[in-house]
């Protein structure tokens, strides 16, 4: 199905664009909570699958950690991180944290274009010798895969979503072309996005997140 555990081929013109991958996997999503990376990943996901369950434009290195916190707080809700090679490389330690705090409801999809594409295209370590799925497996994440085709991406994610026996989180590295589509319209700012995201969680989980400051108040 185009999925392999070995070192993937280099990203390049033969790899699909990230926006095409996002459109390919969007039909698989139902009520997942999604945390996206900065820059075009946010815009592209918003175009592919707009919704109140999306938290856009989390900072580099923070996407998968925020998603892990959500997954641990809501163990019955599937949480998906749309991360990037640059973001994961900023904090590789999170892969060890994910491995050691079982969250089978967490899926981290790492779009690996082997470059800091949105800031000029400097190569990342994955353009060299580094294999992120192998790093994830070495960190202790058993379900860590690499794909470099549209079909493989969809099949791998469908398999991850269908696997109800997985003991921990899954990591899917998707090799993509650095090529991106024209920039989409600007989204809401982070605070509006946060409020809408949290209100969506409250409504769908039946919990209260935004509370009045009443703890210990006497009157």
């Amino acid at each position: 199905m185009g999925v392999r555990r070995q070192r993937a081929a280099d990203s390049g013109p033969t790899c699909p664009r990230r926006d095409a991958c996002l459109r390919e996997i969007a039909p698989l999503f139902t009520d997942e909570l999604v945390v996206t990376n900065v820059a075009r990943t946010a815009f592209e996901w918003h175009m592919a699958h707009p919704g109140e369950g999306n938290l856009y434009t989390m900072g580099m290195g923070l996407v998968t950690p925020v998603a892990l916190g959500l997954a641990l707080a809501l163990p019955r809700r599937r949480v998906v991180a749309l991360d990037g090679d640059g973001g994961i490389l900023l904090n590789l330690g999170v892969l060890a944290t994910v491995a050691n705090h079982p969250a089978p409801n967490l899926v981290s999809i790492i779009f690996d274009n082997e470059s800091y594409a949105s800031t000029g295209g400097l190569p990342t370590a994955t353009a060299g010798r580094t294999d992120l799925a192998a790093v994830a497996r070495a960190a202790g994440i058993e379900s860590a895969w690499t794909t470099d085709t549209l079909e493989g991406t969809r099949a791998a994610l469908a398999g991850i979503f269908a696997d109800e026996d997985r003991a921990g989180a899954a990591v899917l590295v998707v090799k993509v072309s650095p090529e991106t589509p024209p920039v989409a319209p600007k989204l809401m700012d982070g605070r509006e996005n946060k409020y809408r995201f949290v209100r969506h969680i409250e409504a769908t989980e039946g919990i209260t997140v935004l509370r009045p400051s009443v703890v210990g108040r006497r009157e």
């Binding site: 290195g61 916190g69 641990l72 944290t97 946060k194 949290v198 969680i201 997140v209």
Partner: peptide, 17 residues
């Protein structure tokens, strides 16, 4: 693994209630 990651985990946990 580090406090920046830890803070981000806390942020996610807060949004999850």
């Amino acid at each position: 693994a580090n406090e920046g990651e830890g803070a981000a985990i806390c942020a996610g946990a807060w949004m999850g209630g």
